[in-house]
Design a protein around this nucleic acid. Structure first.
Lengths: 240, 240
DNA sequence: CGCGCCATTGACTCTGGTCAACGCTAGTGG
DNA sequence: CCACTAGCGTTGACCAGAGTCAATGGCGCG
């Protein structure tokens, strides 16, 4: 799940180096030249979160923003009565706090152990104001997130339970393929409850649907994930 | 539904004037000084769309972007089998094509008659590159859209039919209050089918739920809208 | 070894979907 | 001017997909 985190390297006058960061090219940092990256590095703090640890909470003042460098984060909203909707899973290369707003709009918790670069929001925002190409990159990221959110609205509003699970598994495979080698084995570090809360289902429906897919030789349930036996047929099941 | 559209006024060397535009202060244009607004005006085309007319279609090359100045637009995605999910309704002040991407991610159709400012995407993008504060404003708009999309995910994934309708009506009232005078009469120019496709329900469930709310003295069904008789109780019904 | 958490499975319920009939209104054409 | 039609909305009867409740199983951790 982890990609290399910023580690000792050359270039900057600091100890670590963003220059050799494993997510540099897929993160917002790809907008920056080496010298700029060095400036940003000066204001970054490498941090780690244990599984289940909170990165930030919905409604709290947004003191920091994060660039995820490894692991998986769940982003969610709660209703007053405790119902939860997970609005996304963040992986290496994803940026948390894109909106640069006063308060966090969602809560974020580590699913696995997570490594990230933390920035004070004030300092980061000030730097962004001075670097339009970085702002442009943030806007691209936000636009991409919006597009994903719209896809998820289609899923939640118009797809059956089976279609949701199929789309989720294929989507996860495709996202992970951009980070690691393409593979038919899809790791699922999050719990069934997390999957249910992401797909607008219950834990029982998730479990039953996956069991049914396994019975139909579409996939094989393996520890902490699934192995896709027939990705083409599973893709057909997503209903587009 | 309409706010004043760009009309003949002073300041610029052109005929119309964005300076006096009714949506100037609530649209992306509020980022621009008078002189800049004049530059932007030179590349804008005022356009009108009849009800049911298409502004653009998902997947097509994004030749234009739009600043809505009056009326209502539905934004939607289709599944191959024809199921539709409306991902949003755009009103005066909203911007279409925020992502500035190669292709449209959704389709847009006029619900009412719509007035808008059209810009060639190439020219607009070039102008944005030269005006970081405009990019900042676009990013704010995109972030706001993302936040609304996340709220809609909660609605679609975790709320009951009654909660969805209540949240929809209260949300519409609040949006319209920012454009017109606050009012307990909520105009609903879109069809029941549109509401259903926005809320992930069927037309029958929308109709039944509204009927039930009317029976419970929560609202009164009026031509092309509803009058909220008990906004407080309706708000309570949204479930937060 | 035993406890606790998570996942699975089964039986039953219920919310919302499906199918069908009907009514209202606006637009059309004789 | 009015009969006809088409589209939209409402209502009812019935159905099914997913939720609820409950019991059991499996695995990891203390």
């Amino acid at each position: 799940m982890d990609l290399p985190i910023p580690s000792a390297a050359a270039g900057c006058t600091h100890g670590r180096s963003c220059l050799a960061c494993g997510v540099r090219l897929i993160s917002v940092c790809s907008a920056l030249a080496d010298s700029e990256l060095c400036e940003l590095e000066a204001m970054s703090h490498p941090v780690r979160f244990a599984s289940k640890e909170s990165l930030f909470t919905q409604g709290e003042p947004a003191s920091d923003v994060f660039n995820v460098t490894g692991g998986m984060v769940r982003l969610y909203k709660l209703l007053p009565d405790g119902r939860r909707q997970i609005v996304g899973f963040a992986l290496a290369g994803d940026f948390l706090g894109l909106a640069l707003m006063e308060r966090y709009g969602v809560s974020a918790e580590a699913v696995t152990e997570v490594s990230a670069c933390r920035f004070a929001r004030d300092a980061f925002t000030a730097y962004v104001e001075a670097k339009p190409h970085l702002l442009r990159r943030l806007h691209e990221f936000a636009s991409h997130e919006l597009s994903l959110a719209q896809d998820q609205m289609v899923l939640l509003g118009r797809r059956s339970a089976e279609e949701r699970i199929a789309a989720f598994l294929i989507g996860m495979r495709d996202r992970l393929a951009r980070l690691r080698q393409p593979s038919v084995t899809v790791p699922l570090p999050m719990s069934r409850q997390d999957i249910a809360d992401y797909l607008g289902l219950t834990i029982e429906t998730v479990s039953r649907t996956i069991t049914k897919m396994a019975r139909n030789r579409l996939l094989l349930v393996v520890p902490d994930g699934v192995r896709l036996l027939d990705p083409a047929r599973l893709t057909a099941l997503t209903g587009g």
